[in-house]
Write a protein that binds this DNA or RNA. Structure first.
Lengths: 228, 228
DNA sequence: CAGTGGTCTAGACCACGAT
DNA sequence: TCGTGGTCTAGACCACTGG
């Protein structure tokens, strides 16, 4: 039996029995190294696999932790992140990273030639940052967006303030790694796996209203999809 | 700039310019090591990140290769793998791994107490194995399933031979790693990231017809989801 | 300040693939 | 048989965290 597999299985067992509870800190790499008469490289081989599996995650230079419950999410339904999280007994939080104006639209031709807003936010569950998103919409359509509350549901701001209703959307979902600048913002190592979701949202008459890019930590979300 | 980042960016660039074409083999780890005056550990650090990103993949002890195009797939639609693949100009293939009878159903209580069939298959695109699935259904409902063609659409066999129509389904989708036995079958290293999809399919009167577990290589699939 | 994880060196042996 | 990737050793220095 391979050494890193032994370490991996040892930790898996301690996770399965509940000896290591969600959120709690694992022994340090050097402790594990001694315990298994091995080296840090080999220990990290095991940890990397557990991380890919979604069982543990690292906080930069702080240590390794047991992954909390995943948020269950149905991408086909209009989501309100805060409500969804609360239903599942998480404490959600949204932090605004920036609101920029892009003078020339190179992101999404469908949104026209005019200037765009780009709203970047980080969302957390129980103090753990799990998602970064960049929301793009036409500045002309949402004048003075910066004067609105932007840490809640954008869908609701669009509906209530600008009378723009979202009727349907298309998502593309793939598995990749956080772009380096996103990893920085989420305080993750570069190369951290994630789900990338790009989302185009339309009005009833098929006008593109906004175009969003989301990066979810791969171990923080589980999708539910219902087919006809 | 970190050394493994330099190596990573160097390869990313060669991928972006098309110098390294989909399917083609990368230089060996030892070649890269010399080229960057580094060590294999560091080179592999870069390769691991490119793999997580979905840009390259490894074939066990054969080398590293550029990832081909992804299959685009809408999980909310009834899929026929072969048709879907052909539409996107792949050559699909299905290999039957095993058809077992499970005498006591510990997999899925909803399928009743009776014996279950468990059909395991591997699906490939252009000779690359990209998915493993285990299909579970009640033996009593699909007697002599082993006498049917099982390398095509099971949905069609159910409809045409057994007059059982699937009306709707629920999927759960998460990111994890291949279980070790699946990694073996797909000839991947253990710890390879994947999309895990569990799928429950029902008849119009809400009878559970089958319960399936699928493991897709994370770099082989992109999902499209449409929301109301 | 001590301890942590992140990065890196310079080797080694093995099983397996290609030839 | 030779080259490949897979695993492993025994160290090192650094940046950062936490007390």
């Amino acid at each position: 039996m391979l050494l890193y597999q032994q370490i991996r299985h040892h930790l898996q067992e301690r996770l399965a029995t509940g000896e290591l509870q969600p959120g709690c800190k694992l022994p340090s790499e050097r402790t594990l190294q001694e315990q298994f008469n091995s080296t840090r490289i080999t220990v990290r081989e095991a940890l990397a696999r557990l991380e890919a599996e979604g069982l543990i995650y690292s906080q930069k230079r702080r240590g390794w932790f047991v992954t909390p419950e995943k948020l269950k999410w149905n991408p086909a339904k209009k989501v309100n992140f805060n409500l969804l999280a609360q239903e599942q007994e998480f404490t959600p939080q949204t932090r605004i990273v920036s609101l920029n104006t892009l003078l020339d639209n190179t992101i999404c031709p469908e949104l026209g030639n005019g200037a765009l807003y780009c709203l970047s936010r980080v969302r957390s569950l129980n103090e753990r940052a799990i998602m970064f998103e960049a929301i793009h919409c036409a500045k002309a359509r949402f004048v003075d967006l910066e004067k609105q509350r932007l840490d809640g549901s954008i869908t609701e701001v669009m509906a209530n303030v600008y009378a723009v209703e979202i009727s349907h959307e298309t998502c593309q979902i793939s598995v990749t790694v956080l772009p380096d600048y996103v990893a920085e913002i989420l305080e993750k190592n570069n190369g951290t796996p994630c789900l990338k979701i790009t989302r185009s949202r339309y009005s009833a008459d098929n006008d593109l209203i906004d175009f969003n890019i989301e990066y979810w930590l791969h171990d923080a979300i589980e999708m539910i999809v219902e087919g006809h």
